[in-house]
Nucleic acid binder design. Structure first.
Lengths: 192, 192
DNA sequence: ACCTGAACACCGTTCAAGT
DNA sequence: ACCTGAACACCGTTCAAGT
């Protein structure tokens, strides 16, 4: 078996989509690649470097899609982010647990901050606003994947009864748009 | 040594504040309590039940503080949430990884949604808005604790140079307020 | 009722040794 | 250069056995 960083990362993503982050161990990954666990350490310093690589790979996919978008605004960026994050199960947890300033991720962060500026955010609040946008998308996808995993993890019935017709859970796309607009309009309202 | 659920939870919180979530194992926790790891399983079904208990304990603290606040609005709720979450290192990760519908947590969620309603959010978007508020505070505290842990994890210098004077990182309280206002004003702007 | 010894099936990681 | 066997120091969890 001929290994390299990309094959390992792609195999890891396959495992993530099958069984989630908990089931992705160096040993299970090695087994999926028909190789021994120790072999992986020739290509990655440790498990964390592998996770960092996966986050960076996903960021690369996003960057690739972004170059095709002209006059990209924050609204479009958020939608592309969500779409690509959804392609990898537990990707939000991976992004949250790895060092964020790898090349492609840094590009995304800088683009995000530039787009915040376009929305009228002042320089003193660029990093807060950027983190907020980042966290909004990551958390939203995390929630989507969480509720998609087991239907039993739903809200208890007495809870749902309290507030009538929360159809937002059934309309994840519309709900994401709503949340995104809350954020964008909030930025603009606070900016002026 | 006389054990009960609360003593175990409090010892766990002490360990969290000393070394973070990674260093909190059933074995290290048992050692801190001068007991064997197997003993903990008499009081908690498993590690996850212990974590759920810690999240519930923190939620209880928040509920206690909330009863003393009259005419609590979402702004105040968010501030109290942040304060209590900050008292326990890695509490956001614990909240994100445990079942959210335990008694005190459910109270908080329902209060949050009621306060969203007061802000003019329509019924169809109550759960999205509630999740957003929840995620905003959790992510903010997570970021605060992340950057407080190691100063080396700061942004690379070429990055900071790009955008001048992001004093928000130095003013975490003001930055939190800014983000919170973005959210609240966004809800109101989207509501009408 | 409450705790423990000992075991099981896992982890991540290292490193001398193989090709 | 690339992979492996074997080991080290850990995990969470179970359960018969002790008091």
């Amino acid at each position: 078996m001929k290994l390299d960083q990309q094959t390992i990362q792609l195999a890891a993503i396959t495992l993530l989509n099958e069984n989630g982050l908990e089931a992705l161990s160096m040993r299970s990954l090695a087994k999926a690649l028909d190789v021994k666990a120790a072999s992986l350490y020739f290509h990655f310093k440790n498990r964390n470097a592998l996770m960092e690589g996966i986050a960076e790979l996903i960021s690369g996919r996003i960057c690739q899609r972004l170059v095709k978008v002209k006059d990209c605004d924050f609204y479009q960026l958020a939608h592309i982010l969500r779409e690509e994050l959804k392609r990898v199960n537990d990707s939000p947890k991976i992004f949250e647990s790895t060092y964020p300033f790898t090349p492609n991720r840094t590009k995304l962060i800088m683009l995000g901050m530039k787009l915040m500026q376009d929305l009228g955010v002042d320089k003193q609040h660029l990093t807060v606003a950027g983190n907020m946008g980042n966290n909004f998308v990551l958390s939203y996808v995390a929630d989507e994947q969480y509720f998609a995993r087991d239907t039993e993890r739903q809200m208890p019935s007495e809870f749902a009864a309290q507030f009538t017709s929360p159809i937002d859970l059934a309309n994840p796309d519309e709900a994401f748009d709503y949340g995104l607009n809350v954020f964008i309009h909030g930025l603009q309202a606070t900016a002026k």
